[in-house]
Design a binder for these strands. Sequence first.
DNA 1: CTGAAAGCGCTTACAG
DNA 2: CTGAAAGCGCTTACAG
Lengths: 342, 342
Amino acid sequence: MGITIKDIAKIAGVSISTVSLVISGKGYVSQATRRKIQKVINDYNYRPLRSAQQLASNQTGNIGFITSDVHLSRSEAFYSRILLGVELEARNYDYNVLLSTVGEGTNIPKNIPRFLKGRDVDGIIIAGSIPEDLLWYIHDIAIPVVLIDYRLPDLQHDVVMMDNRHGIQQIVQHLTSQGLERIGFIAGSKNHPSIKERFEGYQITMEQFGLGNFARAEKNHFLVMQETSSDIGTEGIASILKNEPALQAVICANDTTAMGCLKELQKRNFRIPQDIAVVGFDDNYYAAISQPTLSSVHVPKIEMGVEGAKLLMDRITNPNKIYQTRTVPVEVVVRESSRVTT
Amino acid sequence: MGITIKDIAKIAGVSISTVSLVISGKGYVSQATRRKIQKVINDYNYRPLRSAQQLASNQTGNIGFITSDVHLSRSEAFYSRILLGVELEARNYDYNVLLSTVGEGTNIPKNIPRFLKGRDVDGIIIAGSIPEDLLWYIHDIAIPVVLIDYRLPDLQHDVVMMDNRHGIQQIVQHLTSQGLERIGFIAGSKNHPSIKERFEGYQITMEQFGLGNFARAEKNHFLVMQETSSDIGTEGIASILKNEPALQAVICANDTTAMGCLKELQKRNFRIPQDIAVVGFDDNYYAAISQPTLSSVHVPKIEMGVEGAKLLMDRITNPNKIYQTRTVPVEVVVRESSRVTT
DNA sequence: CTGAAAGCGCTTACAG
DNA sequence: CTGAAAGCGCTTACAG
């Protein structure tokens, strides 16, 4: 079943080569012939069979999207929005996106996305951290790759990141402009490049504002190697307050952590932001509806996906380009949790 | 580049037919030959090229996942978890999953997922509501389809739903067991089948508990035809309280709505749950971290995706089976927002 | 500007 | 139990 290019050619009274040329838009076909063929294609609502195109052209028209299962199911819809951005942009190139999640374990043989084994994609996008072995494996098979919100120091790739340093800089500026200077920092999973950049941004900016001594003191920040969670915020604020009761504000490396922090402070009957101001990062949905609403740094997740898809299409077309890092801008959003002055 | 079945056959000293038989596991091949071939396959790490298999066998080994872009980017990771479940299960069948989102508009020609046009999938899963025209279009091309958390009354399909009625029943039971009887109901998007079922569950259960009069009174529920949001909760509780100041509890059709409701009540200095108890539905991540924590009904999203994938694989293998509706069980999770007695 | 022909890498009857 | 051969529906040099 299904109408084929042969049928179209016969009906239009031309060869299948010419039909193919019209479909692909390549080569020269006279206006008249082109129109004639196009009409038949439209009339019969013909679409070339992808698998035949793939086999003949040695291109799949697919891109693979890889992310860890925990990332994808994370409540804040962070990586699923990146996925959405990729999908939206892929649509513009008439590419399909194949999804594969990977578990946390580094059981390489089992973890390898099927579309890699069946050579089913022209390139892949990796969003967030994945097991290092897997990234090396992918690197070794020499397929075009773009990383979004992840990178490995030793590996050259196209990368999309958000401007973490500048985001933190905006936060510190916002807090100090209100006279807050004793500013702590809480983060989980500090080996993640974004978290690392956020912490560095904190250190650097505090230095610039003459608060380097405070920021450098171990007791004023809380960093753990754990997957992001609200518990980290709870533990973190408890830990910092124990040693620094005069804390005026705290920056959490993301909103989820900030939520735990808010909760613990409220439990201790701190007034927010009068006693302690709290700021998150990512600007997830519940930042706007939490009680109090949470100041945060807005990260344009969908745009990051779009950028990633663009970079990948570029790389597929032009495999020898030099590698690029695209940094998308971010912006602080001030809400109740840190608005001290009015 | 790339090793082919021909290479494997030559090295193993057999015909390509035999190699193909070994790979597919079909037909009879002697133990000895099978082992010999398998060894070569392993040694060379050979994987058949999917597009060639697809073309020759007229099967794609792909399933398509369709959801609306707003669903996928919804903060609560509801549909992205369903997607995750589908992906996990598809892996067991060695199927790829292709993702396509559709916009809200019903601009059919443009909205049609590419994988449908290129006949790139053996079946599709639709999660959540999509434009009705599109569903009809898909129905008409007669491809295996499974709907998750969606259905159209006039259309026969395999469907996966959560047990909405029973979830609400558990809530009402929980509330009445604490002596709360003046229980309101708030929901957006009441044309969505799940919301509809939840409202019906409310009416029916209230009736069973002898509270039918209260539940039937228009003033005690708030239903609007809008996409789920926290604003609906805010408006809803305001509206109900205006006419029913003696309200003791309110059931929100989902957690997002409940968040808006909590916020408004706190703004008015109601104590929760002492003055008014609040319960949501879905058990999203922030139900556990909100202030107060929110009672809700846990919906196993990943399992719903898994069930959907299973149904679809069944349907692909056996296109003439009678249609099934699978209802996954749910369970109320009592938290601070509704725990009145201790 | 257009057509005839080879070839992409598999699967699947069909013989034997 | 195994092999030779046709065929899946395209693309892409190559002629003309």
